[in-house]
Every structure is written in C-alpha cells, then in structure tokens.
Simulated assay, not measured.
Amino acid sequence: MKLLGISGTIIGVKPISIVEAVLKEAQNYDPTITTEILDLTQFNMEFCDGRPITEYNADTKKMIEMIESADCYIIATPIFQASLTGVLKNLFDLLPVSALRNKVIGFAATGGTYQHYLVVENQLKPIAGYFKSYITPEYVYAHREHFNNRNEVIDTEVAARIQRLGIQIVQMTNALKHVVTAK
C-alpha cells in the first residue's frame, strides 16, 4: 500500500508538518506501507486550462502521476479567506475524475480561527465525494496555537487526532481493497 501525503500550499510549513506526522503514525501502525510526500512547494504546477494532461509541463504531469499511483492519501491545506488554497483547488482541477475513485482520503487543515475547521466539512469532503473517494471519519484541524515555534504539534488532542487519522487511513484502505465496483 502506498500512502501519499499532499501538502496543499506553496507557503507555510504547518500543513507539511501535519502530513509528515500522519505518515509517521500510519507507518507506526503498519510498517509495511510505503509513504511519499507531494509538497507543492517543490513543483512548478501549471494552471488548469482544459488541455489534455500530456500537454502540461513535466512537474504537473509528475504530480498527477504521483496521485494516480497512490492507494490512499492524507491531504492538508491551510485555510485562507475561509477556503482551501487556490493551488490545492488547481491540483484537484487538473486530476482526471478517476484519479481518486474508490481510494481513501484523510484531510487536515490549519488556520487562524477555530471556525475554519468547517472548510473540511463544507469544501474538502464534497470535493472527495465528487471524485467518488472514501473519506475517513477522523480529520485534523489545528489552530496556530496548537504548534510550537518550530511548527511541531504540541496540543495533545490534536496529536491524538493525528494518530487516529493515520490509523484510519490504513485500516480503511485495507478493508476496502477487495471492494469491486462497476466500471
């Protein structure tokens, strides 16, 4: 099983910090899984404009390939202006509809207010539903006060949610791998 962590931002480090923590917890639970990180700061992604994927630059094609080859995901985003980042939305727009079908997604978000967790419920989960993905019951929302000055999670409840999320992604992917659906 390959778990791909996606940090859906080109600025800031809190989302990648949570992605890394979830990947670590998933591997602690099941050391046989492989993990990989898609950190959007490391790629030159083009804007989605309707071209066939083959006509985009190498970085954009590589990102889509990484997503299509994974079995499950942890996707994290900071919340800006009460929404997911534009760069993460662009990534979703670039994906073929089948890229995430029948795959498990866990979400994480960071923000500056305690109400921004609603972005997971009202924006990210519907996007996963559009892709016909399975969504973990657990997700992580972390406020800036939940981190120390090295951007490490210091809040025990957030750390417990990170652990549960890592485990749920693995358990759900294992449980659903034999589900056969019509094409």
Rank of each mutant, 00 (worst) to 15 (best):
L118W: 09
G112Y: 09
E65L: 15
Q163R: 05
F47V: 14
V119D: 02
L4A: 00
G50Q: 10
Q27W: 08
I67L: 01
F131H: 02
K14V: 05
Q81W: 14
L118M: 14
F47C: 13
Q163Y: 10
A21D: 04
Q42T: 15
G86Q: 07
N90L: 05
K24N: 09
E25F: 08
M63N: 07
N149M: 14
N44K: 14
T35N: 02
L4I: 08
A108C: 01
M45Y: 02
A82I: 12
R101G: 07
L124Q: 02
P78C: 06
A70I: 00
R51V: 05
C48Q: 15
K125H: 00
V120D: 04
T85S: 13
K2R: 07
V119Y: 06
N90Q: 10
V153L: 08
Y56A: 06
F92P: 02
G112A: 15
I75E: 02
A159Q: 04
K61I: 15
E20Y: 10
F147C: 06
Y73V: 00
C48F: 15
L176P: 11
K177P: 08
I74K: 03
N174M: 11
I64V: 11
H116Q: 15
E36L: 09
G8K: 04
C48M: 14
E157T: 12
E138L: 08
E68L: 08
D39I: 06
S133H: 01
L91R: 00
I79F: 03
A142P: 10
M1P: 06
T60D: 03
T136L: 04
G12C: 08
E55H: 12
T34D: 10
E145K: 14
S133R: 03
L4P: 07
L118T: 13
V179D: 09
F107G: 02
G8W: 03
M66R: 05
T32V: 09
R144C: 13
Y29K: 07
V22Q: 00
Y134I: 00
K177G: 05
